[in-house]
Design a protein around this nucleic acid. Sequence first.
DNA 1: TTGCATTACGAAAGTCGTAATCATG
DNA 2: CATGATTACGACTTTCGTAATGCAA
Lengths: 291, 291
Amino acid sequence: MDPHLLTTFVTVARCGSFSAAAAELGYTQSAISQQIAALEADLGLPLLSRRPVEPTPAGRRLLEHAEPLLLRLRAARADVLRSAAAPRDRIALAVTPLGFTAALADRLARARAARPRLEVTVVTCGRERVAALVAEGEADLGLVDGLAAPSDPLRPPDAGPMTTAGVGEEDVVVALPAGHPLAGRAALRLADLADARWLRTPLCPLSRLRALVGDGFPVALEHRGDDVRTLIALVAAGHGLTLLPATVLGGAVAGAVGVPVSAPRLVHRVELLHGTLPPGPAADLARALTG
Amino acid sequence: MDPHLLTTFVTVARCGSFSAAAAELGYTQSAISQQIAALEADLGLPLLSRRPVEPTPAGRRLLEHAEPLLLRLRAARADVLRSAAAPRDRIALAVTPLGFTAALADRLARARAARPRLEVTVVTCGRERVAALVAEGEADLGLVDGLAAPSDPLRPPDAGPMTTAGVGEEDVVVALPAGHPLAGRAALRLADLADARWLRTPLCPLSRLRALVGDGFPVALEHRGDDVRTLIALVAAGHGLTLLPATVLGGAVAGAVGVPVSAPRLVHRVELLHGTLPPGPAADLARALTG
DNA sequence: TTGCATTACGAAAGTCGTAATCATG
DNA sequence: CATGATTACGACTTTCGTAATGCAA
């Protein structure tokens, strides 16, 4: 179970081909074949069926372990290296699209005012990638958002030991087309909307919604991507509903209306993610964001 | 960051000596020296100070990552192997001393009655070890106990992906010497006992208690080991207080008295731990224990 | 001097690439 | 057949053990 072989294995599984994986990893077909053979010999199990190249049941099981394992390995390496590195005046912030709220942007601005020389990079990406970037030390701090019961933690993806701290909670609204029969209501119960058609979007994962509220929430349309304006346009055009933070869809925006959720009590929560921070700008910024 | 080198590193760090680690791992002194050198070269950092052999700050950081990482690696391997193995009529159960309650023993007995050919092994050990045994597949099921707020999960140590399920909660009592001024009370508030002297014992971790109740609970005596009778004897002799499940210290036992805790609301909770179980005796037993 | 880590070096094993071979759609 | 995985084999690299060397109590 050499990580080297594991990396090759996940690449082959992803590519569905030995030769494609060889090209991607800069090896020859033959080397890949030998590595997979070595891994299979080590475990005493076939991991891939050939022609077409697909993981066997055991291979699928290994895949589930391998990715997070390799991530943790990179994270450990990065953390040790970082712990010995000199603090730098460059900060990288990884944020989910709805995680970087106006309030947090303000706090960041105030913190920067006190440290004018501080270079800041902000990267927007999905929650798993945020966690991975923070774990691997590519980002010093991460901001992930999600639905939660009030003051409940978010449970970000496990990418190794990491500190989390809530940095903001705000109300949640149902995004409805302006002409929707319920658009005029003062508040809505989510249970009453479980049979409506919903948008599947990374900005509001339906799986999370079902875990918090219950079954239902059938998918009307899938939206891939980060852009909130696209999402609101889809809602406005009646393709389906979604949930958004109240500050994002305050009143009526571009043909969509946000109606507060009265039950169950839900909040849009933002959490700060970081590894063990050495004293320096990153730690200061973490304090500033925590408020 | 080869796991092989990592294993060598943690062994050397634990032994505090290259030669002792060499003996333990079945290598020569020279090989160990070369492996540590390779790891240090890979990270570009000194990890051990020599004479005496002690981890450097970077080495300490690496140690924190290495142990759980290696555990997860073994766990992944075991899980893949297990997923492909035929179900066997032998079950191993890893339990913490207070995790294997009478109620659970009964459920186990009933489950065995239905499957007379089932061989069962029960291993008692600490919570980390239970988690590790389950993760590595040495045990099919684990039972860990701990203090928690009612219906709150226990958060067992992270040893890889694992399913947890509550299998029992019962009240908690403060164990007091029979002659203690408070021994006659119907109930006690823990906050009032924060200044009393407490026993440090793995059966009731004070760190957990402090996290749930607050600071205080100074240590009067440390007890290492699993034996509840020893613990009760220590309480009876006035060496300090501890918390126990109500069924363990129901009335007065051997000079100690259990007084219910009225505030905060705490329970002694037992959780079942297991990996993904293939259909078979282990899964059946898990169902039986869950009740 | 003694115990223990390091270095030098040769033997053994492992890993990769080239090229031939094999299997399957 | 043709595409793509496997096998054979040689070159190179890595890793270990033996033995000599270095170093601090």
